[in-house]
Design a protein around this nucleic acid. Structure first.
Length: 101
DNA sequence: CGGTTGACCAAGT
DNA sequence: GACTTGGCCAACC
């Protein structure tokens, strides 16, 4: 399967623990601009191995989460990420994606 | 195949 | 600084 969603899941799994990536970065990593398509794919995310909770919007906000933002926030904090008002410090946890694969 | 939607983003008002 | 508009792309109807 090489569908768009599969690619998205692949990237999500590549995100290291304690870091967060934006939908935009995921799309960019795939060489596309379907930010929204990325979000939809994650929303449907049938793979529990995919840490979709590490994926947030460009502003560092947790935005929506199928399991509930509370759960997501708890998970992120468990990964070592500090959440402030439902937001993450991109300065500290925002991924750079320079040339990761 | 056309139209709508969406866990988005950037720019303009 | 909050709201609106346009754009972008894949999935669904």
């Amino acid at each position: 399967m090489t569908s768009f969603a599969e690619q998205v899941y692949r990237i999500c799994k590549q995100v290291p623990q304690g870091k967060v990536a934006s939908y935009k970065q995921i799309a960019e990593a795939l060489g596309t601009k379907a930010y929204q398509a990325v979000g939809q794919a994650l929303n449907k995310n049938p793979y529990r191995e995919v840490p979709c909770h590490r994926i947030i919007n460009a502003k560092g906000e947790l935005h929506g989460f199928a399991q509930g933002l509370k759960k997501k926030q708890r998970l992120l904090e468990a990964e070592g990420i500090q959440i402030v008002q439902g937001k993450v410090d991109l300065k500290k946890f925002g991924m750079h994606w320079k040339s990761q694969s």
